[in-house]
């Protein structure tokens, strides 16, 4: 997939950083910002309630290129968006004397559910057309209003709970109190519920122990992960949407990621778009869906590194046998 622009755009990079932030006018500790992960975490134990976050932005745009190109009325804007809350605020930035663009986009607590994406666009008049987007940041930031640590969430939730305890809001797990774990794939992020009431599971999955215990731990983790990936894949496939014109749309959030990561293992000979179309048609037309299951299983086991974990366990077993003799 390649894109063409109908007018001149910037070749140089647009980069930016959030240098600092304030919550209702008070400085946010710098430890709540991660320059490496490009995340701002706004939830502080000390300040449960706040109304407005103000972000201190520093943007670098290719100044030299701009000066020589066919662009006029150049404006640099910061864009804060969040899909679920229909958040979209666009803040004009100001050019400072040293050529960087600075500004303070604000985020109202009431306007954002979990995390907003912060990007920067450069807008200019090109060939007499005003308001053209001529460049934008590629490495964007996340502003997380719920997080206590500035990290990009890249892991599933793992919820350790005693299924037998009938504890709000997990009463429904009571029905599964003899299961060691359960995978739930609806919602913002899939969750693996680990049943702490299942004797020994916490200790087994914990840290330390003999090499044999570690090998078994790897095996169990791979087993749980395989189930999780399989469940996530099915959930993602069922979320593929058919647009008005009959074309297919990639699902959003983690489902998009799961499909893009696993489809090359499920249907290796197809481009991502073709694989999406193939998997969708097999599912709704019920033909060829069953034949696909082994491939889904395979893709999930690759994600869960079953081969490596099983191999380690077998080797460990061999070694302990030798010790017995």
């Amino acid at each position: 997939m390649k894109t063409l622009m109908p007018y001149a755009t910037l070749a140089g990079e647009v980069t930016f950083k959030v240098a600092a932030a304030k919550l209702d006018g008070r400085d946010l500790p710098l430890s709540m910002l991660s320059q490496q992960e490009r995340v701002v975490a706004l939830h502080q134990v000390e300040r449960q309630k706040w109304d407005e976050a103000r972000l201190d932005l520093r943007v670098r745009i290719p100044e030299a290129e701009l000066a020589e190109g066919p662009w006029s009325d150049v404006v640099c804007v910061a864009v804060l968006t969040e899909g679920v809350s229909n958040l979209r605020t666009v803040t004009r930035l100001n050019r400072s004397a040293d050529g960087t663009w600075v500004g303070s986009p604000t985020l109202a607590r009431d306007a954002c559910r979990t995390r907003a994406e912060l990007s920067v666009s450069v807008v200019a008049t090109v060939d007499g057309v005003p308001g053209r987007i001529i460049g934008g940041s590629e490495e964007n930031w996340l502003v997380d209003v719920l997080a206590r640590k500035p990290v990009r969430q890249r892991e599933l939730h793992i919820n350790e709970v005693d299924f037998g305890e009938n504890q709000k809001p997990y009463e429904w797990l009571h029905a599964f109190k003899d299961a060691p774990w359960l995978v739930e794939t609806s919602g913002d992020m899939p969750t693996v519920h680990l049943n702490t009431g299942f004797e020994g599971i916490t200790e087994l999955l914990g840290s330390g122990g003999s090499t044999m215990e570690k090998a078994v731990r790897g095996l169990i983790a791979a087993q749980i992960a395989t189930e999780a990936w399989t469940a996530m894949f099915h959930s993602a496939v069922s979320d593929i949407e058919v647009a008005e014109d009959g074309s297919l749309e990639w699902p959003s959030g983690w489902r998009d990621w799961v499909l893009r990561a696993m489809l090359p293992d499920v249907l290796p000979d197809l481009s991502p778009a073709d694989a999406l179309s193939e998997i969708h048609s097999r599912r709704v037309e019920t033909s060829g869906w069953n034949e696909l299951q082994p491939r889904i299983q395979y893709a999930a086991s690759r994600r869960a590194r079953v081969a490596k974990n099983l191999g380690t366990a077998i080797r460990e077993l061999d070694r302990s046998d030798e010790g017995d003799q």
């Binding site: 890249r154 892991e155 599933l156 919820n159 693996v192 680990l194 731990r217 290796p268 994600r303």
Partner: peptide
């Protein structure tokens, strides 16, 4: 966030490794 051994296998970015990145066969 649960046991580290499990978290590692449930990372959505492949745990920083390039697992799953194949050479295009189309």
């Amino acid at each position: 966030g649960g046991p580290a051994v499990l978290r590692e296998l449930l990372r959505l970015d492949g745990g920083g490794t390039s697992a799953g990145r194949r050479i295009d066969s189309h």
